[in-house]
């Protein structure tokens, strides 16, 4: 019963993933300009060289054949070579991944600490001053442009106070970027934690726990938080999935390497294989992480086994 459900969910994700690959392939067909000319990146070449190159890349084959080999290659993890560096794009992505991953984890850590604290603080006494204050901060966090707050942080803590390095690698250089990512996450998370807590606080078992005379700290820690964490975890999963694909803006502000920076550069230089590979990678990871979260719930709590929306 449980395994059948698990298998159905896993199999159900396959067509979605294949369809996203199809969309990426189709959309990129509309990029104006001949790929071989784009590939030359402005260098001159004879007609013969270009014809050979077109044949080597399979661009002279019918579109259906190109599509089939694209899908097959993606499934094998082979996404071609970058126009610019001539390296296999899969290797390039793997090389940049650790940079994005460390920022994603750092940002997530700060976002969770800040968001949960504010949400719990606000949700325990709805409409009180703590609630109003925390929700105002959350709204500000949601409205702050990451690139602006990132620059302000650099200006205040990097330039004026000189507490942390503004460039470079290592733990110190990760602090400000993580805060930038974390602030953005915290706003949305705090709002969700708050509403979730308010809902759980109204449940009978919480009233029972209070009637028993359990201290508030214990009620929150043992009963409320556990039951209130499911919607927030969903949000965090989605955000984490996006971040693994590179915190595009934060990487740019802090001049950090990473997948986000690579995506922007590949778009600006029209390095199509790299754009294609990055979008395929990001969406696949995004779908898989969302699926993993769904499955996790279903396994933990059999009451929620979301059927595919139909």
């Amino acid at each position: 019963m449980q395994w059948a459900w698990l298998a159905r969910r896993l199999v159900g994700a396959v067509p979605t993933i294949l369809l996203t690959w199809t969309i990426v392939f189709s959309v990129l067909q509309f990029i104006p300009g001949d790929p071989v000319i784009l590939m030359l990146q402005g260098n001159p070449a004879s007609e013969e060289v270009m014809t050979n190159e077109r044949h080597r890349l399979g661009l002279d084959r019918p579109i259906i054949a190109q599509y089939a080999s694209f899908m097959w290659n993606v499934a094998r993890g082979d996404l071609g070579r970058s126009f610019r560096t001539r390296q296999p794009v899969t290797a390039m992505i793997l090389e940049q991944m650790p940079h994005s991953l460390e920022l994603a984890l750092g940002g997530l850590l700060i976002g969770i600490l800040l968001g949960t604290a504010m949400g719990v603080f606000a949700g325990m006494r709805p409409s009180g001053w703590a609630d109003t204050g925390a929700m105002t901060v959350a709204l500000i966090g949601l409205s702050l442009p990451s690139f602006w707050i990132g620059m302000l942080l650099i200006h205040v803590f990097g330039i004026m106070l000189g507490w942390v390095p503004i460039l470079g690698r290592g733990f110190d250089a990760l602090i400000l970027p993580s805060i930038t990512v974390g602030l953005f996450l915290a706003g949305g998370l705090a709002r969700l934690v708050r509403s979730s807590i308010i809902e759980v606080m109204g449940q009978d078992y919480v009233r029972t726990a209070r009637a028993k005379g359990l201290p508030m700290v214990k009620i929150i820690g043992k009963h409320v938080l556990r039951n209130a964490m499911i919607p927030p975890i969903t949000l965090l999963g989605i955000q984490f999935a996006v971040l693994i694909g590179g915190a595009v803006v934060t990487e740019r502000v802090f001049a950090r390497p990473g997948l986000g920076t690579m995506l922007i550069e590949s778009v600006l230089t029209k390095d199509i294989p790299l754009v294609q590979a990055l979008v395929v990678y990001t969406t696949t990871v995004y779908i898989l992480i969302n699926l993993a979260i769904d499955l996790l719930y279903g396994l933990i709590d059999p009451r929620i086994r979301p059927e595919p929306s139909r």
Binding site: P15, T16, I17, L19, T20, I23, V24, V27, L28, F30, I31, P32, A241, V242, G245, V248, L263, I264, V267, L268, K270, V275, V279, T282, T283, Y286, I287, S309, R310
Partner: peptide
């Protein structure tokens, strides 16, 4: 059923990535 599937697939793209992909095609 088909339309919902299409929506699901579109939601499989992180919004900013989808926007960047479209800019890649339409130009800056």
């Amino acid at each position: 059923a088909l339309g919902s599937r299409a929506i699901d697939v579109m939601l499989g793209f992180p919004p900013i990535v989808l926007a960047i992909l479209i800019v890649a095609v339409l130009g800056v």
